[in-house]
């Protein structure tokens, strides 16, 4: 389980990127963090990844405090961030270099097979399309079998078709070891297609504004009425999060649950 308690981040210039964020993500749950730009989604991800230190509060993975990059936490960035001098197989195996070579080779081959890039193992990142590169990045994160996987708008630079196929690929990978996934996104359709719960964030300072449970059976049909209803609920919560505090009427405590 991933638990964030009273997490705050104030940058040196005084910007309050996050203020008192509390969030618990069950083991194996997929949570979509959604919100307008500047609401601290990426800051939150960087804190959980251990790349930045919080100003206050604590992050725990299965009770262990995260105080720097943690072996149980994997990250997929917005850009593929592959190492251009390594071939695809070596990029995928980058996090496994402390393992014996046969095990490494087997796990890399299995991961490449799962993302459908086995025949590209010996090619360089530059020879692959953007979608293929992002698949390599996802395989690189999955191959270390993290308990928590963070994805920071990993599909935002891709076209809609590629994105949809990567969504399926991601769910297939998730189905194997069922890691906890935190997916940062600004795409409502993506959140509804993938997540068990959408956490809507609100900017200035970044904080959790609302939560929308997404209890749709998988595989999810984007054209189904339930999918559209869920999208509308997330969209409405997102709209509310973008209206300034002052102009917003006080919301009844269970607004999210009652919004249909």
């Amino acid at each position: 389980m991933l638990a964030l308690a009273h997490l705050s981040k104030t940058y040196a210039d005084g910007t309050r990127a996050l203020a008192d964020v509390n969030l618990e993500v069950r083991a194996g749950e997929i949570v979509a963090l959604i919100g307008g730009s500047g609401c601290g989604k990426t800051t939150l991800m960087r804190l959980v990844a251990g790349l930045d230190r919080p100003s206050a509060g604590a992050i725990r993975v299965d009770g262990e405090a995260v105080e720097g990059p943690h072996p149980a936490v994997g990250v997929v960035f917005q850009e593929p961030r592959l190492l251009p001098w390594l071939d695809i197989a070596d990029n995928v195996g980058f996090g496994l270099l402390d393992r014996p070579a046969p095990e490494r080779r087997a796990r890399v081959a299995a991961a490449l097979e799962r993302v459908g890039l086995a025949e590209h193992a010996r090619r360089r990142p530059r020879d692959l399309s953007g979608g293929q590169q992002q698949r390599v990045a996802i395989a690189r994160a999955f191959v270390t079998r993290p308990r928590v996987l963070l994805l920071d708008e990993p599909f935002s630079a891709l076209d809609a078709l590629t994105r949809a196929s990567l969504h399926e690929g991601l769910l297939a990978l998730w189905g194997q070891d069922r890691p906890t996934i935190v997916l940062v996104t600004h795409d409502v359709g993506e959140a509804v297609a993938l997540a068990d719960r959408a956490v809507v964030m609100r900017p200035k300072p970044g904080r959790v504004d609302d939560e929308v449970p997404l209890r749709l059976a998988r595989p999810r049909d984007r054209a189904s009425p339930a999918f559209e209803a869920a999208s509308r609920r997330v969209m409405a919560a997102l709209d509310r999060s973008l209206t300034p505090d002052e102009s917003r009427p006080a919301r009844e405590p269970q607004g999210a649950a009652l919004w249909w």
């Binding site: 251990g50 790349l51 990059p69 994997g74 990250v75 961030r81 190492l83 996090g95 270099l97």
Partner: peptide, 25 residues
């Protein structure tokens, strides 16, 4: 910096970071 962060996420120590990311870069 983005490639250096990849090294940090995989918890490379200073000499590993130098050898596996900085040197080739």
């Amino acid at each position: 910096r983005k490639l250096v962060e990849v090294g940090r996420v995989f918890r490379l120590n200073r000499s590993q970071l130098a050898r596996r990311i900085l040197l080739p870069a």
